[in-house]
């Protein structure tokens, strides 16, 4: 997450994290392959068609799904559409400012969107009401409430959890009974950062602040790759990336279990 203000880390902290990294340790005592505790709460809002609150450590994200009726795209007249937006409002961090979404928020929303879209999590072919005329448009809104690192995974998980139990409001538009949103199996996103040649999963804010490079991979149920985003100025070797993807497989399986509980 490239937030110029947050990037100003004191030299003392930077040195401290670097020294720990050389010993293979993390500032909060986790192993390199250890997530912070993950908590998922589903369907907690009344006005949203689907909702979820996800916590990864101190990070807290709320996702809400709304459905509306609109025209399909001309190249897919029998398919619904989806749109993902993310907000980094000032409630979540002293560095966030109100105003239109900045590049960080747009990148975040697009990476989450890509994982869901490319894994076919929402069955778009079942969102058609009248071919070429009327289809469901699914809006996924991600609202960050507390920012302590790793928004990519928190937002992706929140979006998947909110979609999982979402309802298409047919009754609201006098089209018959409400139906569950047709979904398949969700993508699971795993994010790693690299600093001092130390690669760790689920970066906390401290780690993100000094990270040289970031890597997010979204995996489907079979462990196949559905979306990737490499971020920040630093680089990875091909070998490092292969290792990251192998490590992500284990995390994705565990997180998928949590989501399906």
């Amino acid at each position: 997450m490239e937030i110029p203000e947050v990037k100003r880390v004191s030299a003392v902290k930077r040195d401290y994290l670097a020294r720990l990294a050389k010993e293979g340790k993390r500032p909060d005592g986790r192993e390199p392959d250890e997530y912070r505790p993950i908590k998922i709460e589903k369907n907690i809002l009344r006005n949203a068609e689907g909702s979820a609150r996800v916590r990864i450590g101190n990070t807290m994200v709320m996702a809400g799904v709304k459905a509306d009726i609109g025209e399909p795209y001309p190249d897919s007249p029998e398919e619904g559409a989806m749109s993902t937006s993310a907000e980094l409002p000032p409630i979540a961090s002293p560095e966030f400012e109100s105003g239109p979404p900045k590049p960080d928020a747009i990148e975040l929303a697009r990476v989450v969107d890509r994982g869901i879209r490319e894994s076919g999590y929402i069955d778009m072919s079942k969102l058609c009401i009248e071919p070429g005329e009327k289809v469901w448009i699914v809006f996924i809104d991600l609202h960050v409430l507390d920012y302590d690192g790793n928004l990519f995974d928190a937002c992706s998980l929140a979006a998947s959890a909110a979609l999982q139990n979402a309802v298409l409001p047919y009754e609201k538009f006098d089209l018959g009974e409400n139906k569950p949103l047709p979904v398949t199996s969700p993508p699971i996103s795993c994010t790693f950062v690299k600093y001092e040649d130390f690669i760790v999963v689920d970066p906390s804010l401290d780690e993100e602040q000094i990270a040289q490079a970031r890597f997010t991979v979204a995996l489907d149920k079979e462990g196949n790759i559905r979306a990737i985003q490499k971020g920040l100025k630093g680089t990875f070797t091909i070998q490092e990336i292969k290792n990251i993807i192998n490590r992500a497989q284990i995390h994705a399986r565990n997180i998928r279990k949590l989501l399906e509980e």
């Binding site: 068609e49 809400g64 709304k66 409002p89 109100s98 239109p100 979404p101 809104d141 609201k172």
Partner: peptide, 18 residues
């Protein structure tokens, strides 16, 4: 003070922003 309604807080989705 900044009062903000999130897009999914109401019956019809509200566009983000004030």
């Amino acid at each position: 003070a900044r009062y903000n309604m999130v897009p999914f807080s109401v019956e019809d989705r509200k566009r983000p922003g004030p």
